[in-house]
Design a protein around this nucleic acid. Structure first.
Lengths: 223, 223
DNA sequence: TGGTGTGAAAAGTTTCACAGCT
DNA sequence: AGCTGTGAAACTTTTCACACCA
């Protein structure tokens, strides 16, 4: 429970702790990959997810858990519950801006559709790319973006452009009414605060890893 | 300083807090993108990075800071200091396994070389892909992986394969002596504990974002 | 004056340990 | 007998506030 505060009675509908939200998709993945029985213990889920069992139990207690003492959690119920909490049962029209390799990787990824993330538009500036089809969707010119977001009611915009144009794209997305932006460009974009922005920087991940790897061997490097 | 403990005199060589390590690459990016003066205040850095200024100061104090009261931090010193702390001054041979769209996106990204991450091998199972060149590097068959890791002394392995084979690839990488693995496959891989593993799941990021978007935006906006 | 460096407080997260249900 | 659900403790991270210095 949140420390310091005296316990909040109606916790289930309350916002989930951020750390829990970040782990829920992971659990979902582990449950999907789990063949076999109808039930799994927190211990088993923890092993698959690579985390501590107490953490799993606490996280699941937040989502309005369906665990049975002595038995474990019913997989089907748990999946449904997590999906509902994450809002994966809703339809979320989404556009991807920037059809380079990364944009393609995302567009090709078919797992989204089943999670409610429906790609309703792919956009690029490159005339050669425009008109081609990726995963059955035709790439449109960037000029078509604002109208498309509005008409197709896109709620999520994904930026996979070079850093130089990411802010402009973010402005257009925000101005056209998306609720959230997933930004893969290596730059911080600023938009009005009612639009959620999440930044994922692949090269930063590598740098963080490099730091840890560094302290495994060859530690003493001249300053 | 780390709470609870009574202050450690020779702090600089000690490990940095994990949260700080995750932000350092971000600061570095913001500094690189910063034209203009030779000095920046914590307030200015914070604004660019989208975080709180006190956090910036504390983070920078961990890396052995070079701030001048009343003036700010000398950009050049700061960059050098962060680079050194993150180990970006070292050469880190790296292999990428799985040359799909995501693998290509990473291989094409030229920013790595300047940070010490030198791609020394690209590997794939697909005979059509093998032999092609990406960013000047020829794709090799997966069978060549173990010998290549050993001979070229790769310390980092990047997995951009489908989930089904990620564990096998991780086993080969770990067995061939890499220090760290960056795993983009949507599955948790288990290797011996001396090998660092970092998982990045693009679709999970989207799901987390979806949760926030769903609740019509809340109060906690990133400063 | 303006901005760092940092104790101390607050908030958030993880882990432990065990009562209690099935 | 086994496993959940959860208080409470330990730890980490963030934020505040202000002494102190160029």
């Amino acid at each position: 429970m949140r420390t310091g505060r005296p316990y909040i009675a109606v916790a289930v509908r309350d916002a989930l702790p951020e750390a829990t939200v970040r782990r829920l998709p992971l659990y979902l993945q582990c449950l999907e990959g789990a063949a076999g029985g109808t039930h799994l213990s927190s211990e088993e889920i923890a092993a698959r997810a690579g985390v501590n069992a107490a953490k799993v139990r606490k996280d699941l207690s937040f989502v309005g858990c369906s665990g049975v003492r002595g038995i474990g959690y019913r997989v089907a119920d748990l999946q449904a519950q997590i999906r509902r909490q994450l809002g994966l049962t809703r339809d979320r029209p989404m556009v991807i801006v920037g059809v380079g390799n990364l944009g393609r990787a995302l567009a090709d990824f078919t797992g989204f559709a089943s999670q409610g993330f429906r790609i309703v538009g792919l956009f690029d500036v490159d005339p050669v790319t425009v008109g081609t089809r990726i995963g059955g969707i035709e790439v449109e010119p960037i000029e078509a973006l604002p109208a498309a977001v509005r008409e197709r009611q896109a709620v999520i915009g994904v930026i996979t452009t070079p850093a130089a144009v990411a802010q402009d794209v973010a402005d257009v997305l925000a101005g056209s009414g998306v609720e959230a932006i997933l930004n893969f460009a290596p730059v911080v974009v600023r938009v009005s605060p009612e639009v959620r922005v999440r930044r994922v920087d692949l090269s930063n991940e590598l740098r963080v890893l490099g730091y840890h790897a560094g302290r495994g061997r060859a530690d003493t490097v001249p300053e």
